[in-house]
């Protein structure tokens, strides 16, 4: 079988991607910082930096710590606000990026989520709205919406009334019953799920014994969380009928195949981009060969193969 015969295309709620590789929100800015490394049109799509209705400065320093198998961040949703993103960044992005992006929307109230999503919904460049009810690094918002199914469902219902584009919900592993959460989100009208955001964690300074991160806690990401996320996808996939975008610790082509086999229709890649900015390009080059070894000609067919 020739590589040319191998299809990497996937579909997410009618939104066509020529490959399933999506840089995860918070690791790709608004796409422009990777122009130094490659043509950003190589990505299937990308999840833009978590954006809120109003500008946010984020958390004080330090925001980054390291751990075996990954890192912790406590950036705290620093962003210029949805109006500035639409007015200042999208025009520049349209000159270099000709696909659609996934708009990651953060918020501190249901109304804020809805208004921010409504503004993104009107933008041609936006393909999917990703509701971030899972950021562990802000207080009184983010993750607090993502741990109670009724609260989360209410955010989705409100947002769905304001937008036409597909709404995906990025869930937090801190949710005590993820299956119940995901079913509640589907019932509330979510078009898809993004599993998962970072795991709550912390590090202490070895000299002082005090937390390294100014925010005390941060979100753990990187290769070390891959098996944890894989298990959650495997658990949720048979219980929902909407597509799942897998997210957590993917670092290579084999990881993409494994995560899709557990039930993901596409894969977000985060921390590995920060370590190697060419990760997406390298995986895209390698995927056809890995699929060929498995006798697979269409990547869509591997989604959920763990259950067949």
């Amino acid at each position: 079988m020739e590589d040319a015969a191998i299809s990497l295309s996937v579909t997410l709620s009618g939104f066509e991607l020529d490959n399933p590789l999506i840089p995860a929100s918070g690791t790709f800015g608004y796409g422009l910082d990777y122009l130094d490394f490659f043509d950003v049109n190589e990505v299937g799509s990308f999840a833009a930096k978590g954006t809120t209705l109003h500008p946010r400065n984020g958390n004080p320093q330090p925001r980054i710590a390291e751990c075996a198998g990954g890192m912790l961040n406590a950036v705290g949703l620093q962003n210029p606000g949805v109006h500035a993103v639409i007015r200042d960044i999208f025009p520049a992005l349209r000159n270099v990026y000709h696909k659609k992006l996934i708009a990651n929307v953060g918020g501190f109230s249901t109304e804020e989520y809805a208004e921010c999503a409504r503004l993104f919904d009107a933008e041609e460049i936006v393909g999917i709205i990703e509701l971030n009810i899972s950021c562990p690094n802000v207080h009184g918002g983010g993750m607090s919406f993502g741990t109670d199914p009724r609260t989360a469902a209410s955010v989705v219902e409100t947002v769905k009334r304001c937008v036409k584009k597909p709404v995906y919900v990025k869930c937090t592993p801190q949710c005590p019953d993820l299956v119940t959460m995901c079913r509640a989100l589907e019932e509330a009208g979510a078009d898809g799920l993004v599993l998962l955001n970072t795991f709550l964690g912390m590090r202490l300074d070895r000299r002082t014994g005090k937390p390294i991160l100014a925010n005390v806690t941060g979100g753990v990401s990187g290769a070390g969380i891959f098996p944890l996320v894989l298990q959650r996808i495997y658990e949720v996939y048979p219980k929902v009928s909407v597509p799942i975008i897998g997210c957590g610790g993917v670092s290579c082509a084999e990881d993409v195949i494994e995560m899709m086999s557990a039930g993901a229709s596409a894969v977000e890649i985060g921390t590995q981009n920060l370590i190697d900015p060419l990760t997406i390009v390298k995986i895209r080059r390698e995927l056809p060969e890995r699929l060929r070894e498995l006798g697979v000609s269409d990547i869509r067919t591997i989604t959920g193969r763990a259950f067949r």
Partner: peptide, 15 residues
């Protein structure tokens, strides 16, 4: 500063 990416993408070193 402690940095994530070093090339402007992650906002880990913003002040």
């Amino acid at each position: 500063c402690r940095m994530g990416c070093g090339f402007g993408a992650c906002m880990g070193c913003s002040v």
